[in-house]
Each structure stands twice: as C-alpha cells, then as structure tokens.
Design a protein around this nucleic acid. Sequence first.
DNA 1: TCACTAAGTACCCTTTAGGATACTGTTATT
DNA 2: AATAACAGTATCCTAAAGGGTACTTAGTGA
Lengths: 129, 129
Amino acid sequence: MSAASDKIYRCPLELSIDLIGGKWKCVILWHLRKAPLRFSQLKRRLPGVTQKMLTQQLRDLEDNGLIYREVYPVVPPKVEYSLTEVGKTFVPVLRSMYKWGRSYSDKFEVEIDTTLQETIIKEELLQNH
Amino acid sequence: MSAASDKIYRCPLELSIDLIGGKWKCVILWHLRKAPLRFSQLKRRLPGVTQKMLTQQLRDLEDNGLIYREVYPVVPPKVEYSLTEVGKTFVPVLRSMYKWGRSYSDKFEVEIDTTLQETIIKEELLQNH
DNA sequence: TCACTAAGTACCCTTTAGGATACTGTTATT
DNA sequence: AATAACAGTATCCTAAAGGGTACTTAGTGA
C-alpha cells in the first residue's frame, strides 16, 4: 500500500479503511495501545504472521504516520514500535470495533480463540518479574 | 468472502475487519444508515463501482447478517437493501471511523472529494419532491 | 568452532480482490 | 421498431494481498 497522501478518496470511511484494512494492521495497533513492543514480541502475539508480512504492515503503518519505529544500535538488534499521537487517536475507534466484534461473535457463535495470545503475554510478563 | 461463522479468529478485531473490510462494505453500510436504498441508488452513490462488485459486496453483507434484501416482484425489478438490527449496531462504529478519517485527512492534507456523491443525493431528493 | 539471537531482505509462488465487458428478461416510452 | 430502465449473471482478466523458504549481520555464550 502506498502512502494515503498520494490518493484521492470519495469518503472519509474509504480513507480509514485504506489505512487500517487488511488482515494484520488493526491487531498490530491493538497490541501497541498500552505500551511499545519490539518486533519479536509483536511477532509472537500475532500467531501465524510471517516476518515478511509483519515487516510490510509495520512499514505501511509507519509511512502513514500511525506508528513510530525506534532503532537501538545494539547487537542483537533491538527495534521498538509505538503509537504516534495520531495513532493514539485511533485507539477509541479500535475499542469500539473490538467490542462490536465480540458482541457479533456472541450473537452468531463465531469462534474466537485468544488462549494462545494470552499465554504468550503472561509468559512475557513473568520473564520481566 | 465466505460467511464468518465458518472461520476461527484469534481476536474480535480480526472478525470485525473481516466482516467490513475491503473497498466498498463500509461505504455501503454508511449510505444505508438512515434509510433503505435500491440497487441502482446505491450504485449511483458509489462512483466507480461495477455492477458485479456491488452485487458481490451486498451478498457478503447479507450472508453475514448485516443487511437485509427485499425483492419486490414488479417490472422493472425493484430490490431494496436495508440494515438489519445487527447492522444498525455497527453504525456508531462507522461514525467514529468516519470522524477519525476526516480528522486524519485534515491533519495530513489527504484529498477527499465528495462533491459528486452530494450532487447525486440532492438530485434524487428533488425527484421525490 | 559452532550455534543462537533479533530484525530484517530477497525471491518466488498462490490466492483473493477487484474490474471490464457483454449478456439476460420484461415492460413502458419514443 | 428501437431504446431505456432495473437488477442482476457470465466470462475473462489484472492487480494486490498474502505466504514460504532461505539468507544476512554482529556479537555472545557453550
């Protein structure tokens, strides 16, 4: 996806969906809503994502000003991703999408399995004491 | 897109984005938020959509229980699309996405041209007195 | 000396999304 | 007799999204 500023849209919704659509972007932003995360932490939190896809999606979000990428020049490399101010303004929208998705899944009995993600996050919290 | 109830998701956001992602779905729901519209009215309101794409997107939304399709057995045919109860619960989410898109476009000077749509809607209002 | 880590690239491939064009059937209008 | 309106299908095609595997780099610990 090229940067949004190069295009013409016919509705603000078209713009929003272009910025955060696709399989991974919303979930990435969701995981960053509370604190910055490194590449590897994000990767573990998104079961099934490949390195290539994660890199690509992070670049898109960065190009459109939603996240910030900070490189620490150490070995092995450390790169931290966090929400920009604009990115933070999207969190309330994410929250409403999240709630709506949950209520939809209740109503229509769509399966949502978050156990793996939760296990990963708990393990990381333990490692940091 | 197959129906959401056949899949397994790892996050409610993944479900939401699967239901309303893509180029047209949100905009269709947006135009239906106040009143039902017929196929041809929707088509005129979505500049650039082809018949095939519009049909396809409407079927997806119908299969997932977001819109309702009512066929009037008259000639020429008349088919009206409206939001279901579940579809209506998505309108507040749409509203927040709409607002966020507009504020983003203000900040980053992304071009949004709604003049054509507005013209079409005004013309139709005039025709109905 | 070897293996391991983090954060990626490079290259290739498959699947899905999206789009162009032509066609259908019935009736009213020109 | 030809054309337009409406709500689509059918067929074919291109572009974009998404994914798999292998490779890189510099230092650290076994």
